[in-house]
Design a protein around this nucleic acid. Structure first.
Lengths: 204, 204
DNA sequence: TACAGATGTTTACAGTGTCAACAAATATGT
DNA sequence: ACATATTTGTTGACACTGTAAACATCTGTA
């Protein structure tokens, strides 16, 4: 966001490309994104972005990483702001996760999109995504240690939860919950999430 | 699959296109599919497919519908072949669902892919996908009626399960469970699924 | 047999990702 | 300070894509 010189050099083209790209994606979806359009948005030649990104997949990978970092941040934040017990904290981070997906549907889809699974050096991306996953994992680990949750491999339990939340996020984005109004949606998601958490509570 | 005349007319180009396309998708993913490549595979001019499909999205929509029908069939079949109680039958259909995703990962991804959500007259597609969902819904409805499951809106419970299974399918496809060998994977999925079902059992 | 509709082909256009060769701006070492 | 190396941007090109328009051929029916 620093516009200093209207000259030959742009100043921070890499960042500007990422910003412009994510805006286009939010509007039109990932599929329709073209690097040339991004370049046009920035008033720069069509091959200029290639000085900063190896190819289109590279740019998308960076956007996905940004997304995972933001997601991790927001879910972690939600647990910190939470005074209640572990169950409340798990619910809070789950809802924060779903909230992210709700507000950035196309970004979320990009993060799990097919292109990146096939093409990018996915090691980096996988690591970043695991950092988002680790928020859940930490909570579950505590829960198992405290005997609050079922005595089982925390990783498995965390993955179970993650699957549910991810599935809910995807189906929501895909419009399968569209019969719910905005106010109805949150309680609906909360109820579903509660049932999932219930499944891994320690049996008394 | 009927090859009769090596002449001007192909015989059943529409079907042949669908077959060729799904093969390519299984190999290279949806993103890389081009109609022109399909036409080349079939030794036909690049615009010939347009006599049978309005556009690329149309072809993909039909493939997605095929996928949903196949999925519905296989999950239903799994419940029919199942002698045990409701819980066993729910597990069986869930595992059949995951099995479909495992064996047809790219097809599954296509079914929930972004392109179709944005572009096609998705009414038809949504209906087809709901027929796959209805397999779960029926089981859950019975379970609620029998008092075997939590007394709550069956649709909500079914959606909770569907979210979990869908999330598991997606994460599996995306390689997040790749540390498990083929033999380990099934028990792992079964355990996760069990936890999810547990969450909606009637509290005794 | 003539004709109508279905099915394929040729040609063409605009858009894309990306490469190679070149040019301008900036940074760096003396 | 200036010459040079590096970074950054531009121009032009290529191969590929989806798809529209005009034309050709086949096939079933009156």
């Amino acid at each position: 966001m620093k516009i200093t010189k209207p000259h030959y050099h742009h100043g921070d083209l890499a960042c500007a490309c990422l910003d412009a790209a994510i805006k286009r994606i939010a509007r039109d979806g990932v599929e329709k994104l073209s690097l040339r359009a991004v370049a046009r948005d920035l008033g720069v030649s069509q091959t200029a972005p290639y000085r900063h990104f190896n190819d289109k997949t590279h740019l998308l990978t960076l956007l996905a990483q940004q997304g995972f970092n933001l997601l991790a941040e927001q879910t972690k934040q939600a647990t910190m702001n939470q005074q209640g017990g572990l169950q409340e904290s798990m619910m809070a981070s789950g809802m924060a996760y779903l909230n992210f997906a709700k507000h950035h549907p196309e970004h979320y889809r990009l993060m799990f999109g097919e292109r990146l699974k096939r093409q990018c050096d996915s090691a980096d991306l996988t690591n970043t995504s695991l950092s988002a996953f680790s928020v859940i994992l930490e909570q579950v680990t505590v829960g198992v240690d405290q005997g609050f949750l079922v005595q089982e491999d925390p990783k498995l339990l965390a993955r179970t939860l993650w699957s549910t939340v991810h599935g809910m996020a995807m189906l929501m984005i895909d419009g399968f919950y569209s019969e719910y109004s905005d106010e109805e949606l949150t309680p609906f998601l909360k109820t579903m999430l509660t049932h999932s958490v219930t499944g891994i509570l320690a049996k008394t």
